[in-house]
Simulated scan of single mutants.
Amino acid sequence: MQAVFDGHNDVLFRLWNNAAKGADPVAEFIEGTRQGHIDMPRARKGGLAGGLCAIYITSGSIRDDVRDANGHYAVPLSAPLERSPSLDVALDMAAIAFRIERAGGWKICRNSTDIEAAEAAGKFAAVLHMEGCEAIDADLAALDVFYAAGLRSLGPVWSRNTIFGHGVPFAFPSRPDTGPGLTEAGKRLVKACNRMGIAIDLAHITEQGFWDVARLSEKPLIVSHSNAHAITPISRNLTDKQLDAVRESNGLVGLNFAVTMLREDGAKRADTPLSDMIRHIDYLVERVGIDGVAMGSDFDGATIPAEIGDAAGLPRLVAAMRDAGYGDAELAKICRDNWLRVLRSAWHEAA
């Protein structure tokens, strides 16, 4: 079975949300559930060896189902969040991650050696990621603490504005050039991440923010869960010019499984065929190169194709890629190795 290292999931958010309703997040992950997309039994069944697990602070439900007669929609940006309650939630999610580790459900990985050791031991290799930095202060004191706790990747914004920059709204059709980019605090954050060895994720930032990071960062450009705007013109997807910049930086784009980011019509329909995913993979490979395309599922954070269903269904996507002409070496790169390459670079590890 082809091992998959996935660049983005929201399993911690699902576990935190259910814990608030009385569920045991450790048991839910280790013993399994019918909810969501990821737990230990389904990860093992589908070959999901690990991934970047997001600490994400919710703004509540996002109404991307409000569409006009043509299927178009434009959801206003969620309001910025206050730092103090955001920090509390971030700490709660981190605590869930550590409790799962203590119970033997996964290994929190701080470098590629940890990832490889977890895989060899048959444990899920979890990398802590922060999706939107509402829990981080402008002076970056909290960044040092979260780094010490294991944070190794972050996105300066989710699809709302923070003290660090501006996010893209959920809109179709729309370009990602929807507003300003990094703030001065955001520029300091990018430099600090480069210095400390924290990967910077550009999945939710405006196009101007993308270019701000491209100018400032010394590391490969990483877009953990976005697709090709030329196929699906949603604001979250990447233009050809952005894809070219990712390639020039020796960076990476992770294929997002969200159906609204795969379909030409942007519809939120689970009956989206795997051929739509293959079309995006083919386009990304042609534009970025085989070394710059990976997986960024958005498991537990989006509606995904019913043919995959959850983490246990990953072999069906791998089979579709194989049927489309991708050989063993190419599958290994897209499914796992490209993520390890770019993370090693971001984390100051030797190639």
Rank of each mutant, 00 (worst) to 15 (best):
N9G: 14
I200V: 14
R269K: 14
M93T: 03
A192W: 01
G104C: 10
D291W: 06
E28P: 05
G7I: 04
V168C: 06
A54Q: 08
P233S: 11
I136K: 04
W347F: 01
H348P: 00
S112G: 14
A20G: 13
I290T: 09
V285I: 14
I96M: 02
D144R: 14
N237M: 10
P180F: 08
R83Q: 15
A302S: 13
I38C: 14
D65M: 06
A126Y: 01
K21A: 14
K333Y: 02
N256A: 08
V223I: 12
G296H: 02
I30W: 05
W211I: 08
G289V: 00
A267S: 15
G132S: 02
R336H: 13
P220H: 05
H37I: 04
V157H: 09
N161D: 15
I198E: 09
F257P: 00
T178L: 10
D137V: 05
S159W: 05
A90E: 06
D114S: 05
L274S: 02
R34C: 03
G32E: 10
D114G: 09
E82I: 00
R263K: 06
H229P: 04
V318R: 01
G46K: 06
A3P: 14
S78G: 15
V223G: 00
A125Q: 01
G165R: 10
M93Y: 01
I222H: 05
Q242G: 00
W211Q: 10
A94R: 02
R263C: 02
H225M: 07
S61M: 14
G296P: 04
A49H: 03
R63G: 03
I290K: 08
G32H: 07
R215K: 15
A294L: 06
A121E: 15
